[in-house]
Design a protein around this nucleic acid. Structure first.
Lengths: 113, 113
DNA sequence: TTAGCTGGTATACTCTGTTATACTGGTTAC
DNA sequence: GTAACCAGTATAACAGAGTATACCAGCTAA
């Protein structure tokens, strides 16, 4: 395999790795919501119309395991739970921004017709 | 809804639009492969280990319908089929690059441990 | 002539992401 | 006391993305 093909394979691998981590319908919207300052479960839920409590619960758990977010329980009355994005999570910033830009341009393009 | 929230809703919508268009396991790797100069069916197939002819065939059809790629048949003997990315498809460049960058950094990070 | 390339299609199946709906236990407000 | 909020869990079912395997017709090089 020559240098060019080695790079292509590496890039394909990297692309597929990323898809593996943030694939699915909800992970990026959740990350985006939390990065926008939403901390509470119901707050995040409301910020993403269509998501169910079950999906949100599952995704948050998985993302906590993968160190993308932290879950902090404050045992006051009433108990409050706060989710926050880790620095690692914030490295998705450029990916999310690129996708937002594309989505906005896409809508503009459709509107034009 | 105030200005800030309107923006958040717009960004979330754009993000979800993009996920809708390029979601799934194979679309971005296929786009990337074609943008890297692979034109022939088997060539693309070989460049993406693990993909089946069925998935590749299905995705290529859908992407052709959505004007992301063109399919050109040259009726020589033997018949040759060439796929090429459209300019519209190339607008995914920044998204793909951001994801490749993330994937590479992700591997580096894992290697470190 | 037989093996292997091309560009796919056909059939059947699995799997899991996703949805739908209901429910819990504790707290606060009216 | 009852309605509504919080942070979820439980159960069941579904749809479709993805896999596995075989096969086709036409061509070609050994």
């Amino acid at each position: 395999m020559d240098v060019l093909n080695r790079d292509q394979a590496k890039e394909r691998q990297a692309l597929q790795d990323t898809i593996y981590v943030i694939g699915g319908k909800w992970k990026l919207p959740i990350i985006n919501s939390i990065c926008n300052g939403n901390k509470r479960f119901r707050e995040i839920e409301r910020s993403i119309p269509g998501i169910t409590t079950r999906m949100l619960s599952r995704e948050l758990k998985e993302m906590e395991i993968n160190k993308l977010i932290t879950r902090t329980v404050t045992p006051d009355t009433p108990v409050s739970v706060e989710y926050e994005s880790t620095d690692y999570c914030k490295t998705f910033g450029p990916v999310i921004m690129a996708m937002i830009d594309w989505g906005i341009a896409h809508r503009e393009k459709i509107k034009e017709r």
